[in-house]
């Protein structure tokens, strides 16, 4: 079991200094995530879930505690090491897609693969997300769902170990949201990539292997989901 652990967090904390006051965004949290797992982090806004994702993804540094990725302590990484870490191991998907407006769908994906050593075939990835025909469109010419699919393709094409999605359906309508979730789950199940989804949307938990519930910077509950359901069955 030990060798299957991808992430191990030990007493990780995060404090922000806001003028005179320091805000504890993350109180000591400890948990593990295994390779290939589909984990949903659930919590209301301000619960610290985005902070957690940022720290795990190497976008931000923890104030205290240790974070092990594939057995290596990344909490001591400097800027440069974190950059390399993000470049090769992590793929991000954001709520607002954050595509480069001046690049086409395909070019947006290429932007990520260009700096990655073992990138996947872009056309195949685009086909996988169902955007083969839209490859040469600019973000402004695409719907929200399409844009999010480009964002997913962008994250997947670098061939990272983990996909980290921050409210991936937050800006989408229900039907499109479900499609995006189905795509993410499909990638998780077929490629074995670890999937971390952050959401405040309770029903999404039903598709997870494990759910980490957060409130006010604390983990309040970690539950195993013996029978994760298909996203198409999720209703909200």
């Amino acid at each position: 079991m030990e060798k299957n652990v991808l992430f191990r967090l030990e007493d990780v904390t995060k404090e922000y200094q806001m003028g005179e006051v320091s805000v504890k965004a993350l109180k000591p949290v400890t948990f593990e995530i295994s390779k290939g797992e589909l984990v949903v982090v659930l919590g209301p806004s301000g619960s610290g879930k985005s902070t957690l994702l940022n720290i795990m993804g190497g976008m931000d540094t923890a104030t205290g505690g240790r974070i092990y990725f594939d057995g290596t302590d990344i909490s001591a990484y400097n800027d440069r090491q974190l950059t390399v870490f993000r470049r090769s191991r992590i793929g991000f998907v954001f709520q607002f897609y954050n595509l480069m407006p001046s690049l086409t769908a395909k070019e947006n994906v290429e932007l990520a693969t260009e700096i990655s050593a073992n990138a996947l075939n872009i056309d195949e990835v685009l086909e996988q997300v169902g955007l083969k025909d839209r490859a040469n469109h600019f973000p402004a010419q695409m719907s929200g769902g399409e844009q999010q699919r480009v964002a997913i393709a962008r994250a997947v094409a670098k061939n990272p170990d983990v996909l980290m999605c921050d409210e991936p359906t937050g800006a989408l309508d229900y039907t499109t949201g479900i499609k995006v979730l189905a795509l993410l789950r499909h990638i998780n199940r077929t490629t074995g990539k670890t999937l971390l989804v952050i959401t405040h949307n309770q029903p999404i938990c039903e598709m997870a292997d494990r759910v980490i519930k957060m409130r006010s910077g604390n983990i309040v509950e970690i539950t195993e989901n013996k029978n994760p359901i298909d996203p198409s069955e999720i209703v909200w």
Partner: peptide
């Protein structure tokens, strides 16, 4: 600003 954040998230170095 956000796009710079995205580039950094994807592993683009500060220098680049």
């Amino acid at each position: 600003r956000t796009l710079i954040g995205v580039m950094k998230a994807f592993g683009y170095t500060n220098g680049r």
